[in-house]
């Protein structure tokens, strides 16, 4: 590993950290607004298709893609967790401990968001999209 990352690597590292922390939350928010909005508003118009796609497929996409993004954030969080377990010698411990806190929060929160997306998606298997 290179001794000291350059500014661009630092920026990338910082962004990766924030993706780990907030990725699941953002993905879930997108999932919720897309899946709910598409379902409620398409059904309100009396249709069950959006263009060429059946409504069910569109909602399924709004479940699967955010779920994958959350898994990605979970992996990134795990990476931060591992990288902060045994910091190399000579590194200031202060930010490492802070990042470790964020990593713990990130791992757990991504698991929670993943659980929500999966549970919501499971309803797709049981309920027809426009049943009231």
């Amino acid at each position: 590993m290179s001794a000291h990352p350059g500014p661009r690597a630092r920026l990338a590292g910082g962004l990766l950290l924030w993706y780990a922390v907030l990725g699941g939350a953002v993905a879930w928010a997108v999932h919720l607004f897309a899946a709910w909005g598409v379902d409620e508003l398409t059904c309100a118009s009396g249709r069950e298709r959006i263009g060429a796609l059946p409504l069910q497929a569109v909602v399924a996409i709004a479940v699967v893609l955010p779920a994958l993004a959350t898994v990605g954030a979970l992996l990134a969080a795990a990476l931060v967790w591992r990288r902060t377990a045994h910091p190399p010698e000579g590194l200031d411990e202060h930010p490492v401990r802070r990042s470790r806190l964020l990593a713990v929060v990130a791992i757990w929160s991504n698991l929670l968001f993943l659980a929500i997306i999966v549970l919501g998606g499971a309803a797709l298997l049981v309920l027809p999209p426009c049943l009231r």
Binding site: A115, L119, A122, A123, V126, L127, L131, R132
Partner: peptide, 16 residues
């Protein structure tokens, strides 16, 4: 929660 959610989902479908 997962268990009761599943049961609740079944009931929701039944009420529909």
């Amino acid at each position: 929660l997962v268990t009761v959610y599943a049961i609740g989902l079944r009931d929701l479908a039944a009420l529909g």
